[in-house]
Design a protein around this nucleic acid. Sequence first.
DNA 1: AATAATTCCGCAAACGTTTGCGGTGACGTT
DNA 2: AACGTCACCGCAAACGTTTGCGGAATTATT
Lengths: 341, 341
Amino acid sequence: MKSSQVTIKDIAKQLGVSASTVSRALQDHPDISEETRKAVNDLAAHLKYQPNAVALSLKHQRTRIIGVIIPEIVHYFFSSVISGIEDVAYNAGFNVIICQSNEKFDREVSNVKTLLAQRVDGILVSISKETNDYQHLQNIVSNNIPLVFFDRVAPGIKGDQVIINDSEAAYQATRHLVEQGRKRIAHFAAPQNLLIGQQRKEGYLRAITEAGIPVDGRLIVEADNFERARLAIMKFISNGIMPDGIFAVNDITAIGAMKTIQKQGYKVPDDIALVGFSDGRFSGITEPSLSSVDQHGYEMGIIATEMLLRRILEKNDFRLPEIKVLEGDLIIRGSSKIQFF
Amino acid sequence: MKSSQVTIKDIAKQLGVSASTVSRALQDHPDISEETRKAVNDLAAHLKYQPNAVALSLKHQRTRIIGVIIPEIVHYFFSSVISGIEDVAYNAGFNVIICQSNEKFDREVSNVKTLLAQRVDGILVSISKETNDYQHLQNIVSNNIPLVFFDRVAPGIKGDQVIINDSEAAYQATRHLVEQGRKRIAHFAAPQNLLIGQQRKEGYLRAITEAGIPVDGRLIVEADNFERARLAIMKFISNGIMPDGIFAVNDITAIGAMKTIQKQGYKVPDDIALVGFSDGRFSGITEPSLSSVDQHGYEMGIIATEMLLRRILEKNDFRLPEIKVLEGDLIIRGSSKIQFF
DNA sequence: AATAATTCCGCAAACGTTTGCGGTGACGTT
DNA sequence: AACGTCACCGCAAACGTTTGCGGAATTATT
C-alpha cells in the first residue's frame, strides 16, 4: 500500500539494465547509446521519476538547503526578509528551512542544532533578544558552515553581516524634525542592551546636538510599544513638558503616541510632529499618515542570501567577513510635515 | 580545510571499534558493554557529534520534514499560519520547508516538485489565486504523501482541509450591522471566482434577506483593496446612494472606506458603520478602531499541522479525508457600535 | 588475420547510518 | 572433556545515487 516513490532502480529493473546506466542516461552521459538513453528517459517521464534529493545530498555532501533562524515570523519586517530570502534561494535552486526562535535563547540553540544535523549548506541568522552567549553560533563557523547575520548580529562571530545604518537613519529622522522647526524633540527608545536601541538613540543625540539644541534627559524615555508610549505621553502632560516633536524607535510606538496625543486634544503634526521607525505596514493607515524610516526588509533578505550563496558556492573561500550596511529611507508623510497634499 | 562534520566512523576509528558498535552504544543498546558505551558517549560529546539527518532520512525513508506551500509570506494571516505550523512541528521534532508560490500557478507546480524531490513526510498547501488545474496536487496523494489544505483548498483532491466558515462569519458580521439598526448595508466583495468571495457574499445576503431588508444590487460592489474602496465610496456619494453600513471583505478595504468616508465629512460609525474581515493587525490602529472578523491564522496553522502529523505518524491510515471548519470571531469595536467605552 | 580503437555497459565503492545475523571468547554446567 | 550459555562485538546489506574503472562486444586499422 505504502508505495514509495519510484527510484532509479525501478527503472533499471524494468528495462533490464543497471542502475548506473540509468543514472548516466538521465544525465546524457556520452557512454550511453541513443537507444537506451531514449528508453530510459521515456520510462522515467512515464513513471514521473523524481531524483531522490536525500540520496543526492548524502552522495554529494551538500543539501542545497539553507537554514534561517529568525526571532518571529509574524512581523512585517521579518516576513519581508524571509520573502526576499525565499525568492533568491528559489532562483538558485535552493530550499529554505525556517526556524523561529520566538526570541528565546534556548530555542535558538536548539534551532542551530537541528540545522547542523540537517547538514544545511549555509545559515542565515537574526539573533533573539535574549541571546548573549554565542557558543552555538560559533559552532556553525567551527563546522565551516557559511553564516550570514542580518539585522541583529552577534559580535565577535566570524560571519558576514547585513545591517541597516540605524544611527544614520535615526539621525536623518531627527534632523527632519529639526528642519521642521521643532525645538523640543523627544525620543522613545528601545532597550539599551540592544544594538539598535543604542544606535538609534545615538543618531537622535547627534542630530539634536548638531542643531545646537540642548539635550533634555526628561525627553528621552524607554518606550517601545503602544502602551508605554501612551504612558510616556501622559507623563509628559502631567509634568508639563510636552515636546513639539517625537522620534520613536518603531511605528507602533509612534502610533501609540499619536493616538494618545490626539485623544488629549493636541494636533499632529501642528502641535507635535511624529516620526516612527518602520515595521512597514501601518504608515498609511493612521490619520495623519505616519512619517517613518523604511527598513527595506525584502532587500535585506535578498542581499543576505546572495552573500550566503556566494560563500556556499565558492570553492576556496578565504575572504574575510564582510559587513554590508543598508541605508534606511526616511519617508516623510503627514505626521511630521505641516504643509502636505 | 573543508573539515566536514564528525561522523560515527570517525568515532569508531579513534576508538578502534566498528561503526555498528558506536551506533549501538549511542542508543544504549544492551549488547554494548558499559565500558565501551561510556567511551563512545564521551568521545561523541567531546567531538560534538551530531547524527547526520540526511543519512538517517535515507535509511529510515522519512525525513521528518514537512513542506509548506503558501501564496505569500508577507501577509499577516499567512505568517500567523506559518507561525502555528512551525510551533507544532518544532514540538514534534519536525522541520519545516517553506515555499511561496507568489500567487503563481507555475511556481506552485515547481514547489510541489521540489518538495516531492526532498521526500518530505507531508505537505501543507494553500493554493494560489491562479490555480485551476490540480494535477500537481494529485501527484502528492498519488505518491501517498499526506496532504492537508488550509484556507484555500483544491476541490476534488483527497486531502484533509481546515477552513474558516466564511459564510457564517460574513453572516454574523452583517447581522451585527442589522442589529445596530442599519437598513442600507453595502457589501464590498472579493472576486467571485474565489470561494471566499462567493461565501462571504452569500453570508451577507443571507443576513440581509433574513432581516427582511430588500437586496439592493447597487450596494454590492466588487472592491477588495484600499483604492477600490475609495472609488466605490465616491461613487456612492455622487449617485446619492450612501449606505449606512458596510461589510467589507477584508480590513484594508474597510479602512479605505473609512478614510474616504471621513474625508468626505461623514462620521464613523454614526453615519456609516463598518465591519471588516481581518488581516489581523490593523484593527486597533484606526480611529475609530475597526470591527472585524478574526480568522485565527495561528490556530489554523496549529490544527492543520496536527492533522498532518496524525496522518504521517499513523501506520495504517484508512481514514477518509476530514474537513475541519473553524469559526471566525466577530470582534466588535468602535467602527460599528455607537455606544462604546 | 591479428591487433587497436571505439562503443557501450556493469561492478563496486562511496556518502552515514541502522540492524539482522553470525562469530568469538569467557564462563558455567554436565 | 564436551557442551550450552552468555556477553560483547563486527560483517554486510540496505536506503538511492554517482562515478572510476574495467570488461565485453563491435568496428576500424594495420
